[in-house]
Design a protein around this nucleic acid. Sequence first.
DNA 1: TTTAATAAGTCATCTGATGATATATGATCA
DNA 2: TGATCATATATCATCAGATGACTTATTAAA
Lengths: 246, 246
Amino acid sequence: MDTASNLINRTTEKLVHYILDNNVCAGGKLPNELELSRLFGVGRSTVREAVKALVGRNILTVKHGAGTFVACKQIGVTDDPLGFAFIKDKKKLISDLIEMRMVIEPRIAALAATGASAKDIAEMRVLAKDVETLMNSGEDHMQKDIELHTKIAQSSGNLIVPNLMPIIQRAILLFASTTEKKLRYETINTHKLIVDAIENRDSIAAADAMILHIAHNRDRIRRFFIEIETEIKEEPAPPVNQVNNG
Amino acid sequence: MDTASNLINRTTEKLVHYILDNNVCAGGKLPNELELSRLFGVGRSTVREAVKALVGRNILTVKHGAGTFVACKQIGVTDDPLGFAFIKDKKKLISDLIEMRMVIEPRIAALAATGASAKDIAEMRVLAKDVETLMNSGEDHMQKDIELHTKIAQSSGNLIVPNLMPIIQRAILLFASTTEKKLRYETINTHKLIVDAIENRDSIAAADAMILHIAHNRDRIRRFFIEIETEIKEEPAPPVNQVNNG
DNA sequence: TTTAATAAGTCATCTGATGATATATGATCA
DNA sequence: TGATCATATATCATCAGATGACTTATTAAA
């Protein structure tokens, strides 16, 4: 598979082995570039490029002036700066995202109802309140919205869930970019419902509330698509007439 | 978020923007290193490191002597070299993985029952047969097993599903490393059940078959854990007695 | 004790040179 | 003509060395 034909790839593998063999855990520091280059018998720039490749995979973090550290964030889903840029059909993209949210998040909410600590729940309340305040004042609430959903996900206690969050987050953001600026009372209310259910340790109610929450989003996005389509059908008419008549 | 304080990160972003702005699609070639460095006004090594970071994210591919290309993102086995190496509690890790599979994969199977083409289904059959053959001959069937599940996922038609597959794939691999060497007829049978249901365009049956499939895995892994625990309880006894009696 | 200056360690970045690899070009031969 | 092989060119791979920038620990001063 990853047959390292070139030095940089081989150095990348050596770095991984070094981490594993020396049991350098999350947050642990690696030797400096010069040492690594001597250790692996390669040039410093080769080490740097190998490190960069691992930084791209969220495995290492480099702090200027301080050193190179093991990042150990979520793995599995690579965060992709291109996002879904290559996907042409944005409409399908959004509905597919919502579909996946509908699969994953209700279960997460149910797990959170079991796993959340009192502190978790208190933080959820604050975040839900933050979203409400920001929405009411017309400010951007997306960041807090994401934080709330992430908090719920963390509280699920499932080790894999954090890996799925980038997708959920992207879904929320993409959704926001489409329907921004409209007040959404359903969001506020369903957020409350979710946190209430979690606090009551009611898994089923939590899942239901989450389904309701996402369903509201789905409904709104559908209406938004319909709006766009009617706009498209009405707008381009005049220029066509001009051309045909002239 | 990705506030680029240093040149390399900024160059990485510029590269992404370049790809987006110039509409360089999958497989497309980028200008050579020197041109890029002049275009972005940075040194060549800076460009190289930025490129390496994107290679790590599976966004670019570099072919020695040929050039730098936009990677055609294939849904292959995730190449996260560290895997879940840092998670200490392997038992919980595996059960959490199965839990997430149980959430995601039945839905995927149901979608595949709607979205799979005749060609997809034919390929599924071949893969299911491959797994069976390899299992019966005692060879490693994991790769084919993963390919089958990936094929089903692709056939779902959901654009987001491919992003989730690395997790599923890793779950399968991790599971394999734990229970390797035992013949698993349930696997063969449930694989058939799944493909049959998809062929019959029966979403519910497909989901059910997938649930059955994963439930078998879960059951087996539980029994495996119990075996380990009894072994642990029986083995260390003698030395304890020695110490106490001496 | 707190604060400010300093030093040491480390990464960031550029430049230039040389080697290795892929692809296109053109010459040779059947 | 058509296939094969050698060559040239473009491009990435890798190294070394120098200088700048940043972080952290140390030390000196208030």
